[in-house]
Simulated assay, not measured.
Amino acid sequence: MPAPRNSSSNQARFGLARVLSKLGVCSRSQAERAVREGRVSVDGRVVLDPERPADPERQRIFLDGEAVSAAKRVYIAINKPRGVVVSAADEQGRDTVYELLAASGLPWLGPVGRLDKASEGLLLLSNDSVWAAHLTDPRFHVDKTYHVQIDTIPDQLLLDRMIQGIADKNETLAAKRVALLRSGEKNAWLEVVLDEGRNRHIRRLLEAQGIGVLRLIRVAIGNLALGNLTKGQWRHLSEEEVAALQTH
């Protein structure tokens, strides 16, 4: 079970930047930058230290002259297209997932986990940092299911090796479950389930065995499936879906 939401007595122990992030106003890094730029005041005084303790229940916090209060919690699922990066801005000018939300009127949302540029499929975004931290905490082992097209026809030995794990760059990479979905003459589709998420986990697990990934689609997180959500489209999660993911 996830930790309960922080009371004011707990939040008082948090630095100003973290408080802003937990309120769902912006990301932690955005909050740190805003504080250092002198855009945040507490009880009428500008604060320049992002780590200075703050208590939103007892103190008046302003960002860019606007009073800060807890934002309405928003949880969305989006079908990230291939070639789109999960970043608010990209130095190389690549398309970002936030451009898909530009006209939505949504508040600031942070990604719950990542999908690399070449990967596609189910991505969650929320301004509830406690909920997001639970889903991405490796201690809770929330399953993530992927459909992966590879450039070869696998045998059972390959599937077994993926579950047993391989060593790569001082890390052990393994899948929780692997199954063959279908195969053609030169390539095949696998269903791969992870209960942890290391950087480029599946790609590295296969590349270490000389196998290339042609497509990688995340189709489920926990019991939440991508379903018929089309590429580039998003939807709000229901209260039941939010609660079900939190209980993993």
Rank of each mutant, 00 (worst) to 15 (best):
L181W: 04
T152Y: 05
K144H: 11
E99P: 01
R198C: 09
A175T: 00
I202F: 12
V142S: 04
N10R: 15
R60A: 15
L123K: 00
G165F: 06
I153N: 07
A243M: 13
R114D: 10
A102T: 05
P138E: 13
H141E: 15
Q156C: 06
R52D: 02
L63G: 08
A34P: 03
T152F: 05
A88S: 02
A12E: 14
S87P: 02
E120M: 11
D151S: 04
T172H: 11
L159N: 03
R52P: 00
D151W: 05
S104I: 06
A34G: 02
V148E: 11
I211F: 05
A71F: 01
I221L: 13
E99M: 11
R58K: 15
E196P: 08
A225Y: 00
V86M: 06
V42C: 13
V148I: 11
E240Q: 15
A34K: 03
V40H: 03
T230C: 01
H248P: 00
G184T: 09
L173P: 03
V68D: 04
K176G: 09
C26T: 10
N10C: 09
V112N: 00
E91G: 11
R28Q: 10
Q246Y: 03
G105I: 04
L237F: 07
H201W: 05
L123W: 02
D90N: 10
P53C: 13
S8H: 11
I150E: 02
L173W: 02
Q246A: 15
L180C: 12
A208Y: 07
E207D: 11
F62R: 13
F140N: 14
D137F: 10
L194E: 10
I221E: 00
N6R: 14
G113Q: 05
G232P: 08
E239K: 13
R13K: 15
R82F: 14
R33N: 04
D49F: 12
P154D: 11
A208N: 12
I150L: 08
G24M: 08
A77E: 00
R114E: 08
G44A: 13
P53A: 13
V47T: 05
A220Q: 06
A225K: 08
A118Q: 15
E240W: 09
V213G: 01
V74F: 06
A175G: 01
R45M: 13
A179P: 01
A70S: 12
G232L: 10
A71D: 03
H248E: 05
R235F: 06
S129Q: 10
R94D: 02
T172C: 10
G44I: 09
E241V: 02
A67E: 15
R177K: 14
S21H: 04
A208V: 09
G15K: 05
R13Y: 07
E51R: 12
A179C: 07
L122K: 01
H147I: 14
G210F: 10
H134T: 10
R139T: 13
L115R: 01
I221W: 00
K72L: 05
V242S: 03
R218G: 03
R5Q: 11
M162K: 01
H141Q: 15
K22M: 07
V74Y: 01
L115W: 04
N10V: 15
A102N: 06
M162G: 03
G83F: 13
T96Y: 06
E99C: 02
F14L: 15
V68Q: 03
L23K: 04
G83L: 14
R73Y: 02
S126G: 01
R18G: 09
